[in-house]
Amino acid sequence: MGTSRGRGPASRKPWLVLAAVATLMTCGSAASAQDAAALKKSMIGQWELSTTERSKTCVVTLGSESSPHGLKLDLEPGCAISLPFTKDIAAWTVAGLDIVRLQTAAGEPVIDFTEVESGIFEGRRENEGIYILQNLAEARSLAKSMDQMIGDWAFVRGNGQTVCGITLTNTEVPPDNFQAFLKPKCDPAIASFKPEVWRLDHGEILLMSADGETWHFQADDNAQWRLVPDTANPLILVRQ
C-alpha cells in the first residue's frame, strides 16, 4: 500500500510564490504612485518660501503644467533679492514618495522639502540653514499673529497678582528669535530666569534666557497664555 506524499509549503510550485511576490510589489508600487500623485495635487497653488523666522520671504506659485524641466512654477519679483538661491529655480516636482523638490533647468535639486506638520514643509541648504515652505494664506495668518504678540505683557499668577512685566519686540535676533525685555521689580523666579528673546513656535510663545533655558506658554480658553506644564500656582501671560 503506497503512502501519500504531503503537500506542505515546501512542495508548492515556485511560480506561485513568485506570482504572489510580484502581486505584492505591484500593489505597493501602485500605492506609492498614488501617494506621490496626491501630494503633487495638494501642492498646486501659492506658497510662501521663507527663512524660519520669516525675516526673508518669497511667494512661489506651483503649477500643474509640465515643462521641459519638471512642473511649471512662478516666483514673485524680488525673490532672488530676498533669497538669492531662488535664482536657480526653474521648476518643481515630487521626488520619491514625499519630497517636494524645487530644481534647476537641468533637473538638479536646489532644495528638497519634506512635510514636518500638516501644510508645513522644511528644507535645508548646506551652509545656509533651514527654510520653510508653507501655504501662503496660512503663512500670512501666522505673520498677523506675530504682529499681535508685539508689545507689553504681564506675568500674572493664578490668584490674579501681577508679578512682572515684559515687552516683546520685533527686533530680530538671528537666526530665529526676537528681543524681549523684562521690566523692573519682577518676581525672583522670573528675574532669575531673565528671558532675553522670544518667538512663536508651533502655536506656543517661547521665552528663552541667555543660557538657553526655555519657558513654553500655550494659549488657554480665556485668550491668555499659560506656562506649561501647568502647576498649582500657574504663571499666565496677559496682554497689557
Rank of each mutant, 00 (worst) to 15 (best):
A105Q: 06
M208Q: 11
L200R: 05
S50V: 02
A20V: 11
G2N: 12
P184F: 03
M25W: 12
R226G: 06
R5C: 07
D35P: 15
L133W: 12
T57L: 15
F193I: 03
A19P: 13
A191N: 08
K194V: 00
I236L: 10
A19H: 13
V100N: 09
Q218L: 05
E196R: 10
E48I: 07
S145P: 10
E126C: 05
G8W: 02
T93W: 06
P84C: 00
L75S: 04
V17F: 14
S64I: 07
E122I: 01
E126S: 10
S11T: 03
R239N: 08
H202G: 14
A219N: 09
I166F: 12
T104P: 15
S29Q: 15
E117M: 09
R5K: 10
E196F: 06
A95Y: 11
M208E: 14
E115K: 14
L24M: 11
T52V: 03
L182S: 01
A189F: 11
G45S: 03
L16T: 09
V228M: 15
T3Q: 13
H69C: 15
E196N: 10
F85R: 00
L83C: 05
G70F: 06
G2Q: 14
R157H: 08
Q46I: 01
D152K: 14
A223I: 07
I120N: 13
P195K: 05
A154Y: 06
A143N: 13
M43I: 05
V228K: 12
I132T: 04
K144L: 08
N135Q: 12
S50Q: 08
N233H: 14
E122P: 13
A31I: 07
I89T: 01
V156Y: 13
D35W: 11
Q134W: 05
V156M: 08
G129T: 04
I111D: 06
S11L: 07
T231A: 02
S141K: 14
S66P: 12
E138I: 09
S42W: 13
V59A: 08
R125T: 01
I44C: 02
T86F: 04
E117S: 12
L102D: 03
M146S: 06
M1F: 09
L182W: 06
L83R: 08
R140K: 13
